[in-house]
Simulated scan of single mutants.
Amino acid sequence: MKYVILIHSNPQPWGHPTSDFVAEHQALSPEERASLEADFESVMQEMSDNGELLGGQALGDPADARLVRWHAGRRKITEGPYAETVEQFAGFFLIDVVSQERAEEVAEKFAGPGETVELRPVAT
């Protein structure tokens, strides 16, 4: 079963890993930050070893995005970001796992203070 893990964040300034630039994450103790990083690295290694990790990519600053919309009978390109929102789409991972439960287990390791992780099945 394929899923995409969508990372929503608002680092200030924009950078990756996004957690390094999110105030809620920066407020954690060094031990708490190290524990979260170890959880993430562990699940990444596990998925890589199991063939579950199909790919992923961090995204650039939403201020550099361009939107293409249909307006007044033609395509129009405007500057991003897509929406005025607290969180922006920061990156994604594509995984192929045996069950929704496994996908949720993995997605939990991606969640951290000040960020939202969205888990969505890939349409078949």
Rank of each mutant, 00 (worst) to 15 (best):
V68I: 15
S19R: 12
R102H: 06
E24W: 05
G51H: 09
P81I: 06
A63Q: 13
M44F: 05
Q100N: 13
E118F: 06
D61N: 15
A111I: 07
N10Q: 13
P81L: 09
R33G: 00
V106E: 03
T124W: 10
E79Q: 15
P62A: 08
Q12H: 11
E24F: 01
S99Q: 07
R74G: 15
A58P: 07
L119Q: 02
E105R: 13
G56N: 08
L53F: 15
Q100S: 09
D61R: 02
G15W: 01
I5A: 03
S29L: 06
Q26R: 15
N50A: 15
P113A: 11
P121C: 01
E108F: 09
P62E: 07
I7G: 02
V98T: 14
V98Y: 03
K109P: 08
A107P: 07
Q26C: 06
A90Y: 05
Y3R: 01
E24H: 00
P17E: 09
I5K: 04
R69A: 10
I95Y: 03
W70H: 14
R74A: 15
P30L: 11
V43C: 06
R120K: 12
W70V: 13
P11T: 05
V86E: 13
P81A: 01
A111F: 09
F21Q: 06
A63W: 04
L54I: 12
D20F: 03
E118M: 05
D39E: 15
N50Q: 15
P113S: 00
F21W: 11
Q45E: 14
E31G: 02
L119Y: 10
F93E: 06
E115Q: 13
A38D: 12
S99Y: 02
A103Y: 06
T85E: 08
G114V: 08
I77D: 01
Q88T: 03
W70R: 06
T124G: 15
F40E: 07
Q100L: 12
E79W: 02
S29N: 10
I95Q: 02
R66S: 14
K76S: 13
H8Q: 13
Q57T: 11
F89W: 10
G15E: 00
R102K: 14
R69M: 00
L28E: 03
E37K: 12
K2A: 09
T124Q: 15
W14L: 05
E108T: 08
G55P: 00
E41C: 12
E105T: 14
D61Y: 03
V22M: 07
E32N: 04
P17S: 04
V106F: 00
D20C: 08
